Computed example of a mutant assay.
Amino acid sequence: MHALTSNVRRLRYRILAMICAVACVFSLAACGSSEEGKIRIGIKFDQPGLGFKKSGTYVGFDVDVAKYIAKKLGYSEDEIIWKEAPSKQRETMLQNGDVDMILATYSITDSRKKAVSFAGPYFVAGQDLLVRKDEDSINGPEDLNGKRLCSVTGSTSAVVIKQKYSSEVQLMEQPGYAECATALFSGIVDAVTTDDIILAGLAAASRGKLRVVGKPFTVEDYGVGIKKGNTELAIKINNAITDMIQDGSWQRAISDNTQGTAYTPNAKYNPPTPDEGEE
């Protein structure tokens, strides 16, 4: 009887020990992946001058704006969790609560506002052209007839040019703008098209070998994507963007991330007035 009681006691201890071990494992896992007390911001990881992952750090205009906003919201830089936000996944990431906000050349459109809300705009871009430094025959989209134009697969930029400006342009698609820039530098294409500030980032990375034409022909309001209906957060972000513009940090961020390109934002629309998302 005594032996039986001892066996039962030992079995009970083993079960308790196993439960504690499992509890500890789950506790450690939860602690290790905890994002409590931090802000999660979605950016691009592959756009030089805007959102670019470089040796474990993140640089670019979108990154600088995000850091400024985060600081105004009470977060230090080491309390920011950067998450890659590919274009096709942005709405889903916000809807699922994977991120608190997204700054990733995210144009404010009526269709997107059905799924998410925006603050901003923090920048107004315009579609433009990137050419080789010594190219003097392309001064706008109307000069592209018979030329070879590169844009990214799925982008509407090249379609806009073909439909509205140069019906005889030869289109070439690449998976990313870095590949388009390489094709341009190599002479495979004559121009690259997308938003001007994206092109300025590519020009900066080329170290003077490429230049932006500087005649934007569309208007794209870059907003801070947030979860649908979060008006309170939109107001706070708008206040932060206004402060960034007023204290000169916005212009410094533009200059720092387009250095050596002679790029200047379209003065008709920039700096913008952030009024999106306020009711």
Rank of each mutant, 00 (worst) to 15 (best):
S6H: 06
N7P: 05
R10Y: 15
R12V: 13
V25P: 03
L28D: 02
L28F: 15
S33Y: 14
S34D: 15
G42D: 05
I43T: 10
F45M: 05
G49P: 01
G51P: 02
G56V: 09
T57L: 10
V63H: 05
E77D: 15
E79K: 14
I80A: 04
I81Q: 06
I81G: 06
K88C: 02
M93P: 07
V99E: 07
V99A: 06
M101A: 12
I102E: 03
S117N: 04
A119I: 05
F123V: 09
Q127F: 14
L130M: 11
D134P: 01
E142N: 03
D143M: 11
L144R: 05
A158F: 07
Q163I: 00
E168N: 13
M172W: 09
E173R: 07
G187N: 07
I188M: 07
I188N: 04
V192T: 07
I198V: 13
L199W: 00
K209Y: 11
G214P: 01
F217A: 03
V219R: 15
N230I: 10
I235R: 13
I237N: 03
I241F: 03
I245S: 00
W250F: 00
A253S: 11
D256S: 11
T261I: 04
T261E: 03
Y263A: 03
P265D: 01
P265Y: 08
D275Y: 11
E278G: 06
